[in-house]
Design a protein around this nucleic acid. Structure first.
Lengths: 248, 248
DNA sequence: AAACTTCCGTACGAAAACGTACATTTCAAA
DNA sequence: TTTGAAATGTACGTTTTCGTACGGAAGTTT
Protein backbone atom coordinates (compact mmCIF):
# COMPACT_ATOMS: atom_id res chain seq x y z
CA UNK A 1 0.00 0.00 0.00
CA UNK A 2 1.51 3.25 -1.12
CA UNK A 3 1.00 6.19 1.19
CA UNK A 4 1.32 9.70 -0.16
CA UNK A 5 3.40 11.92 2.07
CA UNK A 6 1.50 14.58 3.96
CA UNK A 7 3.41 17.79 3.59
CA UNK A 8 0.99 20.51 4.51
CA UNK A 9 -2.41 20.11 6.10
CA UNK A 10 -5.25 22.20 4.74
CA UNK A 11 -7.86 20.96 7.17
CA UNK A 12 -8.32 23.68 9.74
CA UNK A 13 -8.91 21.40 12.68
CA UNK A 14 -5.77 19.38 12.14
CA UNK A 15 -3.81 22.50 11.25
CA UNK A 16 -4.71 23.98 14.64
CA UNK A 17 -3.15 21.10 16.57
CA UNK A 18 0.06 21.66 18.54
CA UNK A 19 3.09 19.90 17.07
CA UNK A 20 3.12 17.11 19.62
CA UNK A 21 -0.41 16.01 19.15
CA UNK A 22 -0.16 16.33 15.42
CA UNK A 23 2.94 14.19 15.35
CA UNK A 24 1.20 11.52 17.40
CA UNK A 25 -1.78 11.55 15.05
CA UNK A 26 0.16 11.69 11.78
CA UNK A 27 1.04 7.99 11.49
CA UNK A 28 -2.65 7.18 11.67
CA UNK A 29 -3.74 9.67 9.03
CA UNK A 30 -4.04 8.45 5.50
CA UNK A 31 -4.26 10.96 2.70
CA UNK A 32 -6.58 9.83 -0.04
CA UNK A 33 -8.67 11.20 -2.84
CA UNK A 34 -12.40 10.79 -2.48
CA UNK A 35 -14.41 10.48 -5.65
CA UNK A 36 -17.59 12.32 -6.50
CA UNK A 37 -20.65 10.50 -5.17
CA UNK A 38 -18.56 8.09 -3.13
CA UNK A 39 -20.37 6.86 -0.03
CA UNK A 40 -18.29 7.13 3.14
CA UNK A 41 -20.75 5.56 5.54
CA UNK A 42 -24.24 4.18 5.51
CA UNK A 43 -27.03 4.78 8.04
CA UNK A 44 -26.97 2.40 11.00
CA UNK A 45 -23.84 0.66 9.75
CA UNK A 46 -20.67 0.54 11.84
CA UNK A 47 -18.45 3.56 11.34
CA UNK A 48 -14.92 2.52 10.44
CA UNK A 49 -13.32 5.84 9.56
CA UNK A 50 -13.62 9.52 10.26
CA UNK A 51 -12.54 12.07 7.66
CA UNK A 52 -10.86 15.44 7.70
CA UNK A 53 -11.58 17.11 4.34
CA UNK A 54 -8.72 18.92 2.68
CA UNK A 55 -10.32 20.20 -0.48
CA UNK A 56 -13.21 17.81 -0.87
CA UNK A 57 -16.75 18.45 0.35
CA UNK A 58 -18.89 15.93 2.18
CA UNK A 59 -22.66 15.94 2.59
CA UNK A 60 -24.37 14.26 5.47
CA UNK A 61 -27.82 13.27 4.31
CA UNK A 62 -30.84 11.76 5.94
CA UNK A 63 -32.47 8.97 4.01
CA UNK A 64 -36.24 9.05 4.11
CA UNK A 65 -37.64 5.65 3.28
CA UNK A 66 -35.87 4.34 0.23
CA UNK A 67 -34.96 6.94 -2.32
CA UNK A 68 -35.66 10.36 -0.89
CA UNK A 69 -32.63 12.00 0.68
CA UNK A 70 -32.19 15.40 2.28
CA UNK A 71 -29.01 17.05 3.39
CA UNK A 72 -28.60 17.73 7.10
CA UNK A 73 -25.00 18.92 7.10
CA UNK A 74 -22.16 20.01 4.84
CA UNK A 75 -18.47 19.65 5.62
CA UNK A 76 -15.29 21.02 4.08
CA UNK A 77 -11.83 21.93 5.26
CA UNK A 78 -13.19 23.79 8.29
CA UNK A 79 -15.01 20.69 9.46
CA UNK A 80 -14.58 16.98 10.06
CA UNK A 81 -16.90 14.13 9.22
CA UNK A 82 -18.18 11.58 11.72
CA UNK A 83 -18.55 13.36 15.01
CA UNK A 84 -20.44 10.24 16.10
CA UNK A 85 -17.10 8.47 16.59
CA UNK A 86 -16.03 10.52 19.57
CA UNK A 87 -19.58 11.13 20.75
CA UNK A 88 -19.74 7.46 21.61
CA UNK A 89 -21.95 6.16 18.82
CA UNK A 90 -20.71 3.45 16.51
CA UNK A 91 -23.24 4.41 13.86
CA UNK A 92 -25.50 7.26 12.79
CA UNK A 93 -28.85 7.40 11.00
CA UNK A 94 -27.20 9.40 8.23
CA UNK A 95 -25.26 8.72 5.08
CA UNK A 96 -21.99 10.41 4.17
CA UNK A 97 -21.62 11.27 0.50
CA UNK A 98 -18.81 13.02 -1.35
CA UNK A 99 -20.31 16.16 -2.81
CA UNK A 100 -17.11 17.29 -4.43
CA UNK A 101 -14.17 15.17 -5.35
CA UNK A 102 -10.93 15.93 -3.56
CA UNK A 103 -8.44 15.04 -0.89
CA UNK A 104 -9.22 14.08 2.68
CA UNK A 105 -7.33 12.64 5.61
CA UNK A 106 -8.79 9.46 6.91
CA UNK A 107 -8.41 7.98 10.37
CA UNK A 108 -9.73 4.86 12.02
CA UNK A 109 -12.58 5.63 14.36
CA UNK A 110 -11.11 3.79 17.34
CA UNK A 111 -7.79 5.60 16.96
CA UNK A 112 -9.53 8.95 16.86
CA UNK A 113 -11.67 8.02 19.82
CA UNK A 114 -8.61 7.03 21.84
CA UNK A 115 -6.86 10.24 20.99
CA UNK A 116 -9.99 12.20 21.86
CA UNK A 117 -10.08 10.60 25.29
CA UNK A 118 -6.61 11.87 26.05
CA UNK A 119 -8.35 15.19 26.44
CA UNK A 120 -5.82 17.45 24.74
CA UNK A 121 -6.23 20.21 22.25
CA UNK A 122 -7.74 17.78 19.75
CA UNK A 123 -10.63 17.13 22.10
CA UNK A 124 -11.23 20.81 22.51
CA UNK A 125 -11.17 21.40 18.77
CA UNK A 126 -13.50 18.53 18.04
CA UNK A 127 -15.95 19.63 20.71
CA UNK A 128 -16.03 23.16 19.40
CA UNK A 129 -16.58 21.80 15.94
CA UNK A 130 -19.49 19.75 17.25
CA UNK A 131 -21.10 22.92 18.55
CA UNK A 132 -20.59 24.57 15.16
CA UNK A 133 -22.18 21.56 13.48
CA UNK A 134 -25.10 21.70 15.87
CA UNK A 135 -25.67 25.33 14.97
CA UNK A 136 -25.42 24.51 11.28
CA UNK A 137 -27.97 21.72 11.51
CA UNK A 138 -30.31 23.77 13.68
CA UNK A 139 -30.20 26.72 11.32
CA UNK A 140 -30.85 24.44 8.35
CA UNK A 141 -33.91 23.26 10.21
CA UNK A 142 -35.20 26.81 10.58
CA UNK A 143 -34.29 27.60 6.99
CA UNK A 144 -36.15 24.56 5.70
CA UNK A 145 -39.26 25.73 7.46
CA UNK A 146 -39.28 29.44 6.80
CA UNK A 147 -37.38 30.34 3.69
CA UNK A 148 -38.10 30.23 -0.02
CA UNK A 149 -36.48 27.85 -2.41
CA UNK A 150 -34.53 30.72 -3.94
CA UNK A 151 -33.08 31.77 -0.60
CA UNK A 152 -32.20 28.24 0.30
CA UNK A 153 -30.61 27.57 -3.07
CA UNK A 154 -28.45 30.68 -2.76
CA UNK A 155 -27.43 29.77 0.77
CA UNK A 156 -26.46 26.28 -0.29
CA UNK A 157 -24.46 27.53 -3.26
CA UNK A 158 -22.61 29.90 -0.93
CA UNK A 159 -21.82 27.09 1.47
CA UNK A 160 -20.50 24.99 -1.40
CA UNK A 161 -18.58 27.95 -2.80
CA UNK A 162 -16.83 28.49 0.54
CA UNK A 163 -15.82 24.88 0.75
CA UNK A 164 -14.68 24.12 -2.79
CA UNK A 165 -12.65 27.33 -2.93
CA UNK A 166 -13.29 27.61 -6.64
CA UNK A 167 -15.93 29.28 -8.76
CA UNK A 168 -16.67 26.14 -10.71
CA UNK A 169 -17.81 22.75 -9.53
CA UNK A 170 -19.73 19.67 -10.60
CA UNK A 171 -23.37 19.91 -9.64
CA UNK A 172 -26.54 18.79 -11.35
CA UNK A 173 -29.93 20.26 -10.59
CA UNK A 174 -31.11 16.82 -9.62
CA UNK A 175 -28.52 16.64 -6.85
CA UNK A 176 -29.36 20.15 -5.68
CA UNK A 177 -33.03 19.29 -5.49
CA UNK A 178 -32.30 16.28 -3.30
CA UNK A 179 -30.02 18.22 -0.97
CA UNK A 180 -32.63 20.95 -0.56
CA UNK A 181 -35.50 18.52 -0.30
CA UNK A 182 -37.29 20.15 -3.22
CA UNK A 183 -38.57 19.23 -6.67
CA UNK A 184 -36.10 19.10 -9.49
CA UNK A 185 -38.36 21.24 -11.65
CA UNK A 186 -38.48 23.87 -8.94
CA UNK A 187 -34.70 24.03 -8.88
CA UNK A 188 -34.67 24.39 -12.67
CA UNK A 189 -36.95 27.39 -12.45
CA UNK A 190 -35.08 29.03 -9.59
CA UNK A 191 -31.62 28.34 -10.98
CA UNK A 192 -32.77 29.58 -14.36
CA UNK A 193 -33.77 32.88 -12.79
CA UNK A 194 -30.37 33.21 -11.12
CA UNK A 195 -28.67 32.48 -14.42
CA UNK A 196 -30.74 35.13 -16.19
CA UNK A 197 -29.60 37.61 -13.58
CA UNK A 198 -26.01 36.66 -14.34
CA UNK A 199 -25.37 35.34 -10.85
CA UNK A 200 -24.57 31.79 -11.82
CA UNK A 201 -23.99 29.84 -14.99
CA UNK A 202 -24.50 26.16 -15.48
CA UNK A 203 -24.72 23.47 -18.06
CA UNK A 204 -25.04 19.75 -17.70
CA UNK A 205 -23.66 19.44 -14.22
CA UNK A 206 -21.10 22.20 -14.46
CA UNK A 207 -21.96 25.02 -12.07
CA UNK A 208 -20.14 28.36 -12.13
CA UNK A 209 -20.51 31.11 -9.54
CA UNK A 210 -20.35 34.44 -11.34
CA UNK A 211 -21.71 36.94 -8.82
CA UNK A 212 -20.84 36.00 -5.30
CA UNK A 213 -22.14 39.26 -3.88
CA UNK A 214 -25.52 39.01 -5.59
CA UNK A 215 -25.73 35.48 -4.23
CA UNK A 216 -25.15 36.77 -0.73
CA UNK A 217 -27.83 39.39 -1.16
CA UNK A 218 -30.36 36.84 -2.33
CA UNK A 219 -29.55 34.21 0.27
CA UNK A 220 -31.20 34.27 3.68
CA UNK A 221 -29.66 35.32 6.96
CA UNK A 222 -29.08 31.66 7.78
CA UNK A 223 -25.87 31.64 5.79
CA UNK A 224 -24.31 34.29 7.96
CA UNK A 225 -25.55 32.94 11.24
CA UNK A 226 -23.88 29.61 10.59
CA UNK A 227 -20.71 31.08 9.10
CA UNK A 228 -20.13 33.56 11.88
CA UNK A 229 -20.75 31.04 14.62
CA UNK A 230 -18.37 28.55 12.98
CA UNK A 231 -15.63 31.15 12.61
CA UNK A 232 -16.15 32.34 16.16
CA UNK A 233 -15.84 28.80 17.52
CA UNK A 234 -12.77 28.22 15.41
CA UNK A 235 -11.19 31.36 16.77
CA UNK A 236 -11.26 33.05 13.40
CA UNK A 237 -11.90 36.75 13.30
CA UNK A 238 -15.49 37.04 12.13
CA UNK A 239 -16.14 38.46 8.69
CA UNK A 240 -19.05 40.75 9.28
CA UNK A 241 -21.58 40.45 6.55
CA UNK A 242 -22.93 43.45 4.67
CA UNK A 243 -26.62 42.91 5.34
CA UNK A 244 -26.73 42.76 9.12
CA UNK A 245 -27.49 46.46 9.46
CA UNK A 246 -30.27 46.36 6.88
CA UNK A 247 -33.88 46.72 7.86
CA UNK A 248 -36.02 43.66 7.47
CA UNK B 1 -31.03 30.38 50.63
CA UNK B 2 -33.03 27.30 51.31
CA UNK B 3 -32.03 24.27 49.31
CA UNK B 4 -34.51 21.45 48.89
CA UNK B 5 -32.94 18.09 49.55
CA UNK B 6 -32.43 15.94 46.50
CA UNK B 7 -33.68 12.52 47.41
CA UNK B 8 -34.18 10.77 44.12
CA UNK B 9 -33.03 11.95 40.74
CA UNK B 10 -35.41 11.58 37.85
CA UNK B 11 -33.11 12.93 35.21
CA UNK B 12 -31.80 9.93 33.30
CA UNK B 13 -28.34 11.29 32.67
CA UNK B 14 -27.67 12.05 36.31
CA UNK B 15 -29.36 8.85 37.40
CA UNK B 16 -26.92 6.87 35.26
CA UNK B 17 -23.88 8.23 37.05
CA UNK B 18 -21.83 5.98 39.32
CA UNK B 19 -22.12 6.82 43.02
CA UNK B 20 -18.73 8.49 43.24
CA UNK B 21 -19.25 10.93 40.42
CA UNK B 22 -22.77 11.67 41.53
CA UNK B 23 -21.60 12.42 45.05
CA UNK B 24 -18.98 14.80 43.72
CA UNK B 25 -21.56 16.59 41.58
CA UNK B 26 -24.34 16.70 44.16
CA UNK B 27 -23.14 19.73 46.16
CA UNK B 28 -23.18 21.76 42.96
CA UNK B 29 -26.66 20.74 41.90
CA UNK B 30 -29.49 22.98 42.91
CA UNK B 31 -33.02 21.69 42.68
CA UNK B 32 -35.44 24.35 41.59
CA UNK B 33 -38.81 24.79 39.99
CA UNK B 34 -38.83 26.41 36.59
CA UNK B 35 -41.92 28.39 35.66
CA UNK B 36 -43.81 28.22 32.40
CA UNK B 37 -42.32 30.55 29.77
CA UNK B 38 -39.27 31.28 31.91
CA UNK B 39 -36.23 32.12 29.81
CA UNK B 40 -33.11 30.16 30.81
CA UNK B 41 -30.67 31.76 28.42
CA UNK B 42 -30.67 34.27 25.62
CA UNK B 43 -28.95 34.04 22.23
CA UNK B 44 -25.34 35.21 22.23
CA UNK B 45 -25.41 35.95 25.95
CA UNK B 46 -23.01 34.23 28.36
CA UNK B 47 -24.30 30.91 29.63
CA UNK B 48 -24.24 30.77 33.41
CA UNK B 49 -26.07 27.54 34.13
CA UNK B 50 -26.82 24.19 32.56
CA UNK B 51 -30.01 22.33 33.46
CA UNK B 52 -30.99 18.73 33.98
CA UNK B 53 -34.78 18.54 33.67
CA UNK B 54 -36.59 16.36 36.20
CA UNK B 55 -40.19 16.78 35.16
CA UNK B 56 -40.05 20.08 33.32
CA UNK B 57 -39.65 20.47 29.57
CA UNK B 58 -37.35 22.94 27.88
CA UNK B 59 -37.49 24.19 24.31
CA UNK B 60 -34.47 25.45 22.49
CA UNK B 61 -35.64 27.95 19.92
CA UNK B 62 -34.00 29.89 17.16
CA UNK B 63 -34.96 33.54 16.99
CA UNK B 64 -35.45 34.82 13.48
CA UNK B 65 -35.12 38.59 13.43
CA UNK B 66 -37.23 40.01 16.21
CA UNK B 67 -40.39 38.14 16.94
CA UNK B 68 -40.42 34.97 14.92
CA UNK B 69 -39.17 31.95 16.81
CA UNK B 70 -38.89 28.32 15.78
CA UNK B 71 -38.04 25.34 17.93
CA UNK B 72 -34.85 23.50 17.15
CA UNK B 73 -34.77 21.09 20.09
CA UNK B 74 -36.86 19.76 22.96
CA UNK B 75 -35.49 18.46 26.26
CA UNK B 76 -36.98 16.54 29.17
CA UNK B 77 -35.75 14.11 31.77
CA UNK B 78 -33.83 12.08 29.16
CA UNK B 79 -31.88 15.12 28.13
CA UNK B 80 -29.91 18.05 29.47
CA UNK B 81 -29.93 21.67 28.44
CA UNK B 82 -26.87 23.66 27.36
CA UNK B 83 -24.56 21.24 25.63
CA UNK B 84 -22.67 24.35 24.56
CA UNK B 85 -21.11 24.53 28.02
CA UNK B 86 -18.97 21.43 27.63
CA UNK B 87 -18.60 21.87 23.86
CA UNK B 88 -16.48 24.90 24.61
CA UNK B 89 -18.86 27.70 23.70
CA UNK B 90 -19.81 30.30 26.25
CA UNK B 91 -22.95 31.18 24.31
CA UNK B 92 -25.29 29.84 21.65
CA UNK B 93 -27.44 31.51 19.00
CA UNK B 94 -30.51 29.95 20.63
CA UNK B 95 -32.89 30.76 23.43
CA UNK B 96 -33.89 28.33 26.16
CA UNK B 97 -37.54 28.54 27.21
CA UNK B 98 -39.50 26.51 29.74
CA UNK B 99 -42.20 24.75 27.80
CA UNK B 100 -43.66 23.04 30.81
CA UNK B 101 -43.34 24.10 34.41
CA UNK B 102 -41.53 21.68 36.66
CA UNK B 103 -38.39 20.73 38.55
CA UNK B 104 -34.88 20.79 37.19
CA UNK B 105 -31.39 20.49 38.59
CA UNK B 106 -29.21 23.46 37.87
CA UNK B 107 -25.44 23.58 37.78
CA UNK B 108 -22.95 26.33 37.07
CA UNK B 109 -21.47 26.01 33.62
CA UNK B 110 -17.87 26.20 34.74
CA UNK B 111 -18.42 23.47 37.35
CA UNK B 112 -19.99 21.21 34.77
CA UNK B 113 -17.21 21.94 32.32
CA UNK B 114 -14.58 21.06 34.91
CA UNK B 115 -16.32 17.84 35.78
CA UNK B 116 -16.67 17.05 32.10
CA UNK B 117 -12.96 17.44 31.59
CA UNK B 118 -12.23 14.80 34.21
CA UNK B 119 -13.32 12.41 31.52
CA UNK B 120 -15.37 10.01 33.60
CA UNK B 121 -18.75 8.49 33.04
CA UNK B 122 -20.36 11.92 33.01
CA UNK B 123 -18.36 12.87 29.97
CA UNK B 124 -19.43 9.73 28.21
CA UNK B 125 -23.08 10.30 29.04
CA UNK B 126 -23.00 13.92 27.95
CA UNK B 127 -21.30 13.06 24.69
CA UNK B 128 -23.81 10.37 23.90
CA UNK B 129 -26.55 12.81 24.68
CA UNK B 130 -25.00 15.29 22.29
CA UNK B 131 -25.20 12.72 19.53
CA UNK B 132 -28.85 12.10 20.38
CA UNK B 133 -29.50 15.82 20.25
CA UNK B 134 -27.77 16.07 16.91
CA UNK B 135 -30.01 13.37 15.53
CA UNK B 136 -33.07 15.10 16.95
CA UNK B 137 -32.18 18.43 15.39
CA UNK B 138 -31.27 16.84 12.07
CA UNK B 139 -34.51 14.91 11.90
CA UNK B 140 -36.47 18.04 12.74
CA UNK B 141 -34.76 19.65 9.80
CA UNK B 142 -35.91 16.90 7.47
CA UNK B 143 -39.37 16.95 9.00
CA UNK B 144 -39.69 20.69 8.53
CA UNK B 145 -38.95 20.29 4.88
CA UNK B 146 -40.93 17.23 3.91
CA UNK B 147 -43.86 16.67 6.20
CA UNK B 148 -47.32 18.13 6.53
CA UNK B 149 -48.41 20.35 9.35
CA UNK B 150 -50.62 17.57 10.68
CA UNK B 151 -47.73 15.10 10.84
CA UNK B 152 -45.47 17.61 12.47
CA UNK B 153 -48.09 18.61 15.00
CA UNK B 154 -48.66 14.99 15.98
CA UNK B 155 -44.96 14.37 16.25
CA UNK B 156 -44.50 17.37 18.46
CA UNK B 157 -47.40 16.43 20.70
CA UNK B 158 -45.89 12.96 21.08
CA UNK B 159 -42.54 14.42 22.04
CA UNK B 160 -44.22 16.62 24.62
CA UNK B 161 -46.32 13.72 25.86
CA UNK B 162 -43.22 11.61 26.43
CA UNK B 163 -41.53 14.36 28.39
CA UNK B 164 -44.34 15.64 30.58
CA UNK B 165 -45.39 12.12 31.51
CA UNK B 166 -48.98 13.20 31.81
CA UNK B 167 -51.91 13.34 29.45
CA UNK B 168 -52.64 16.97 30.19
CA UNK B 169 -50.47 20.01 29.88
CA UNK B 170 -50.57 23.76 29.29
CA UNK B 171 -50.30 24.60 25.64
CA UNK B 172 -51.88 27.27 23.49
CA UNK B 173 -52.21 27.06 19.74
CA UNK B 174 -50.20 30.22 19.45
CA UNK B 175 -47.24 28.58 21.16
CA UNK B 176 -47.58 25.47 19.04
CA UNK B 177 -47.59 27.54 15.87
CA UNK B 178 -44.36 29.24 16.88
CA UNK B 179 -42.63 26.00 17.79
CA UNK B 180 -43.61 24.44 14.49
CA UNK B 181 -42.90 27.58 12.49
CA UNK B 182 -46.43 27.67 11.12
CA UNK B 183 -49.44 29.97 11.10
CA UNK B 184 -51.62 30.03 14.16
CA UNK B 185 -54.72 29.63 11.98
CA UNK B 186 -53.24 26.56 10.39
CA UNK B 187 -52.70 25.01 13.80
CA UNK B 188 -56.31 25.81 14.72
CA UNK B 189 -57.54 23.94 11.67
CA UNK B 190 -55.27 20.96 12.16
CA UNK B 191 -55.79 20.71 15.89
CA UNK B 192 -59.52 21.04 15.34
CA UNK B 193 -59.44 18.05 13.03
CA UNK B 194 -57.56 15.99 15.61
CA UNK B 195 -60.06 16.99 18.25
CA UNK B 196 -62.96 15.95 16.02
CA UNK B 197 -61.33 12.56 15.64
CA UNK B 198 -61.18 12.29 19.42
CA UNK B 199 -57.38 12.14 19.48
CA UNK B 200 -56.87 15.27 21.54
CA UNK B 201 -58.97 17.69 23.50
CA UNK B 202 -58.13 21.26 24.23
CA UNK B 203 -59.53 24.48 25.50
CA UNK B 204 -57.86 27.78 26.21
CA UNK B 205 -54.36 26.48 26.72
CA UNK B 206 -55.27 23.18 28.30
CA UNK B 207 -54.21 20.31 26.04
CA UNK B 208 -55.24 16.73 26.73
CA UNK B 209 -53.94 13.68 24.89
CA UNK B 210 -56.80 11.21 24.50
CA UNK B 211 -55.63 8.77 21.85
CA UNK B 212 -51.91 8.25 22.00
CA UNK B 213 -51.99 5.43 19.48
CA UNK B 214 -53.93 7.43 16.89
CA UNK B 215 -51.42 10.19 17.41
CA UNK B 216 -48.59 7.80 16.66
CA UNK B 217 -50.34 6.62 13.52
CA UNK B 218 -50.83 10.15 12.26
CA UNK B 219 -47.35 11.39 13.12
CA UNK B 220 -44.47 10.93 10.72
CA UNK B 221 -41.63 8.45 10.95
CA UNK B 222 -39.44 11.21 12.36
CA UNK B 223 -40.81 10.63 15.83
CA UNK B 224 -39.58 7.06 15.92
CA UNK B 225 -36.26 7.74 14.32
CA UNK B 226 -35.37 10.25 17.03
CA UNK B 227 -36.85 8.22 19.88
CA UNK B 228 -35.12 5.00 18.95
CA UNK B 229 -31.77 6.63 18.43
CA UNK B 230 -32.03 8.42 21.77
CA UNK B 231 -32.95 5.22 23.60
CA UNK B 232 -30.20 3.32 21.85
CA UNK B 233 -27.60 5.90 22.84
CA UNK B 234 -28.91 5.90 26.39
CA UNK B 235 -28.58 2.15 26.54
CA UNK B 236 -32.32 1.68 26.84
CA UNK B 237 -33.86 -1.30 25.17
CA UNK B 238 -35.56 0.12 22.08
CA UNK B 239 -39.33 0.11 21.98
CA UNK B 240 -40.03 -0.99 18.47
CA UNK B 241 -42.80 1.02 16.97
CA UNK B 242 -45.83 -0.52 15.33
CA UNK B 243 -45.53 1.13 11.92
CA UNK B 244 -42.02 0.16 10.93
CA UNK B 245 -43.15 -2.91 9.04
CA UNK B 246 -45.83 -1.02 7.16
CA UNK B 247 -45.49 -0.30 3.47
CA UNK B 248 -45.01 3.29 2.50
C1' DA C 1 -24.21 6.69 -37.08
C1' DA C 2 -27.70 5.10 -34.11
C1' DA C 3 -29.40 4.23 -29.74
C1' DC C 4 -29.38 5.55 -25.18
C1' DT C 5 -28.75 8.05 -21.03
C1' DT C 6 -28.39 12.18 -18.60
C1' DC C 7 -29.60 16.75 -17.87
C1' DC C 8 -32.43 20.62 -18.36
C1' DG C 9 -36.78 23.37 -19.79
C1' DT C 10 -41.63 24.01 -19.57
C1' DA C 11 -46.36 23.62 -18.62
C1' DC C 12 -50.23 23.08 -15.65
C1' DG C 13 -53.66 21.43 -12.46
C1' DA C 14 -53.62 20.29 -7.46
C1' DA C 15 -52.59 20.89 -2.83
C1' DA C 16 -50.86 22.95 1.01
C1' DA C 17 -49.92 26.67 3.58
C1' DC C 18 -49.64 31.77 3.86
C1' DG C 19 -51.26 36.23 5.22
C1' DT C 20 -54.81 38.74 6.80
C1' DA C 21 -59.06 40.16 8.63
C1' DC C 22 -62.60 39.68 11.69
C1' DA C 23 -65.86 37.22 14.84
C1' DT C 24 -66.57 34.60 18.92
C1' DT C 25 -65.74 32.53 23.24
C1' DT C 26 -63.85 32.31 27.78
C1' DC C 27 -61.48 33.72 31.60
C1' DA C 28 -59.55 37.32 34.56
C1' DA C 29 -58.95 41.84 36.16
C1' DA C 30 -60.88 46.30 37.32
C1' DT D 1 -70.56 43.49 36.67
C1' DT D 2 -68.23 45.51 33.31
C1' DT D 3 -64.27 45.69 30.71
C1' DG D 4 -60.59 43.80 28.49
C1' DA D 5 -57.29 40.57 27.13
C1' DA D 6 -56.28 36.04 25.61
C1' DA D 7 -57.53 32.02 23.01
C1' DT D 8 -59.88 30.02 19.38
C1' DG D 9 -62.83 29.70 15.04
C1' DT D 10 -63.60 30.89 10.28
C1' DA D 11 -63.25 32.69 5.85
C1' DC D 12 -60.85 33.79 1.63
C1' DG D 13 -57.79 35.37 -1.85
C1' DT D 14 -52.76 34.73 -2.71
C1' DT D 15 -48.60 32.46 -3.08
C1' DT D 16 -45.61 28.80 -3.22
C1' DT D 17 -44.48 24.48 -4.10
C1' DC D 18 -45.90 19.89 -5.44
C1' DG D 19 -46.58 16.22 -8.61
C1' DT D 20 -46.49 14.85 -13.00
C1' DA D 21 -45.93 14.70 -17.78
C1' DC D 22 -43.58 15.52 -21.82
C1' DG D 23 -40.04 17.26 -24.90
C1' DG D 24 -35.64 18.70 -26.28
C1' DA D 25 -30.67 19.15 -25.95
C1' DA D 26 -26.18 17.33 -25.06
C1' DG D 27 -23.16 13.88 -24.28
C1' DT D 28 -21.90 8.76 -24.30
C1' DT D 29 -21.95 4.10 -25.59
C1' DT D 30 -22.44 0.50 -28.92
Amino acid sequence: MFQKSITRVENRILASLPAGEYARLLPHLKLLTLEYKQVLFEPHKPLRYAYFPEDCVISMVSTVFDKTIVEVGLAGRDEMVCVATFLGANSTPHRGIVQRQGRALRIKTNVLHDEFRRGGRLQELLLRHTQALLVQVAQTSVCNRLHSLESRLCRWLLMMHDRVQADEFVLTQDVISMMLGAQRTGVTETAGALQKRGIISYSRGRMVILGRQKLEETACECYWIVSEERDRLNGIRPTHHPLRSQSH
